[in-house]
Design a protein around this nucleic acid. Structure first.
Lengths: 144, 144
DNA sequence: ATAAATTCTACTTGACAGATAGGAATTAAG
DNA sequence: CTTAATTCCTATCTGTCAAGTAGAATTTAT
């Protein structure tokens, strides 16, 4: 029942882009350094974000990445679903429920449905813009 | 971000006990058969519940298990925390947060705190008695 | 005594998280 | 036009853990 580093790093990566983005692309090396995350590992994560159109890449020297959309257009839920896969607590709920022959008889499904709704309710209602705002509130003295 | 079979089976096991309990102990073999779960695997799970005082065991022939408390005294959260370990989505939140040197600077913690609150809000407010009730509502025609 | 049950401990298997590694392709700058 | 900086691609590694299997010891009702 844990969010993996992949998803968490993806959120921090995009937040870093949102905070440090001017108009020039940002090299992954710099993000890795600021966030204290292996650059090689971040490569794989940002590849996912790139393919999904979450970031735009500029290749070659002085290249890097920029956000493809406005911060308020990224939900945490979207980022996590992309990197973690679906976020249902069990595989028999959600929009692609795996079929289980006990489905009809099984009362516990209701638990997982309520749980999934609660989870979605949180992560689908926090955007990168919120994170930026939270950051600005709390950290004159800190960088992320 | 999945609940493992251990936790899910524990819930079904206790629900089975709540539904089929009269005053006589129920053999694990019967639960395993009804639930379609390996008896050997259930052994290990019920051992946890037994040690925690969730069930009472009667050894020997005609032995088995009975619930130690009333169904309304078991929360799903309690069962899951016991079998799954803590249910925080990341290790840096909850009552035993692992210390992270980025803790003060890290805005994403707020996401995970909100998420954990939402998760707890659901699972700590569903009891075995609720599951029994849901079961009785929906299944004249079905067994669990 | 026997059979039915719980209890205990060890082992197996496969999958996956969390990286690391190396080189190919692209491009700005000198 | 060469160099250095960067993204892109694919393969490999390592440890951990979920999910179960296995076998034998212990307890107890009949």
């Amino acid at each position: 029942m844990k969010i993996s580093t992949k998803g968490r790093y993806a959120v921090r990566l995009l937040l870093d882009l949102a905070l440090y983005n001017t108009k020039d692309p940002i090299a992954l090396k710099d993000i890795a350094k600021r966030q204290g995350i292996s650059e090689k590992y971040l490569e794989q994560i940002i590849a996912i974000l790139n393919k999904a159109g979450y970031v735009r890449s500029i290749r070659g020297a002085q290249g890097g990445y920029v956000l493809a959309k406005n911060p308020e257009d990224y939900t945490v839920g979207g980022i996590l679903r992309l990197t973690e896969g679906d976020l249902t607590p069990v595989s028999c709920v959600g929009q692609n429920p795996s079929d289980c022959e006990r489905r009809n008889q099984c009362v516990t499904v209701r638990i997982w449905e309520k749980l999934y709704d609660a989870i979605s309710g949180v992560i689908d209602n926090i955007t990168l813009a919120d994170l930026v705002e939270w950051h600005n509130e709390t950290s004159d003295q800190y960088v992320i």
